[in-house]
Design a protein around this nucleic acid. Sequence first.
DNA 1: GTATTTGTATACTGTCGAGTACACAACAGG
DNA 2: CCTGTTGTGTACTCGACAGTATACAAATAC
Lengths: 204, 204
Amino acid sequence: MTAGDPADTKTPGAAPVRRLRRAERREQILASATRAFARAGFTATSLDDIAAEAAVTRVILYRHFESKADLYRAVLDRARTRLAETAGAGDFTDAPIPALLCAAAADPDAFRLLFRYAAREPEFRDLTRPLTGPLTAASAEITRRNLAPFVPEGPWADWAARLIPAVTVEAVIAWLDAGRPDRETAAERIGHAVHGVITAAQPR
Amino acid sequence: MTAGDPADTKTPGAAPVRRLRRAERREQILASATRAFARAGFTATSLDDIAAEAAVTRVILYRHFESKADLYRAVLDRARTRLAETAGAGDFTDAPIPALLCAAAADPDAFRLLFRYAAREPEFRDLTRPLTGPLTAASAEITRRNLAPFVPEGPWADWAARLIPAVTVEAVIAWLDAGRPDRETAAERIGHAVHGVITAAQPR
DNA sequence: GTATTTGTATACTGTCGAGTACACAACAGG
DNA sequence: CCTGTTGTGTACTCGACAGTATACAAATAC
């Protein structure tokens, strides 16, 4: 469907009053879809579920998005953007854990969706990888760098490199589930837990 | 569908030679279905996928199982049984981590399926809960007991109680992914990592 | 060899969900 | 008021998949 998006064919002088409505609706749909997808993942969430969540019908979704996959892509994209914005400059290189906590607190649904579901849907990894890739690759890289001085190359370094991002994410989600007590303490303790994993990976 | 199962209407003295064939086929189907489900979860795995994995057609599946849900239940049940058998007496109370490693090594697909997918399919929690319930409830209980002496009741105890099983499972899966280096060392290191989480949950 | 049981395959039905066509409602500008 | 644009809803098509009916092949018991 290369049918021209109506937004592209407008005359330049047209008043963009209506357009705002459209953007608002789109935003509302994206938020609802994020909630819906975060509950059950992509395949298990029907467009009717999303439409119900957004209090509209399924057709409306197609007025704003070309397909379910397109909507999903937009949801993931928005999630990544929002998380990156709240987390700071979008780089998780300096202080990843506070940034993650900040992002998770700002949009828990987006966080759960990106880090729990999106990373694990094999058939849509090509869809999610360009979004989660920067984050997971970065964290894996950081992990490797922080690990290198302590843990020699080998299966145990692999083990730790795989485990640390998972632990971090699980710790953040557990923090959300536990009622988000004191964010700074949480950052400290998650850092401590991760440090424990690094220590565990070292030969004794 | 109360149509009598042909197996029930046999004469008592019939030689049960054929039955073995049937049991073997059933077992093969269960193993294949475990692999298939472990790849993508329940909803994303079609009966054709499973049939292809077992090198039979879809109809055969119905000769052995009443429905997809029934097959899934049987797969989960078998997974739990096999894991419990390899892990020891089926109780994870004494030395949960070596038991988990043993079970994961013996049947990685079953392990991944039970602990990764089955625990997270919301629509089938009623199906999976009677199977994963004993395990997760037990581990949560153990966690709470081991935590009580160190961490005071409150959100942080909740946090740790949620996190520890997740970390354990992730550590085991990371160990599988890393090529299963030396199981005893793995048990030690996972124990160490979990200890790190417990320490992290303590107020300083 | 004939009947019964088990394994196999082809072809069907029915349902659910993705995607579409078309009719209707609200609001701007002429 | 009429027209065009945008938002909305009803009713449809189409395909994938769960589940079923039925015919066929191999092996054993009599």
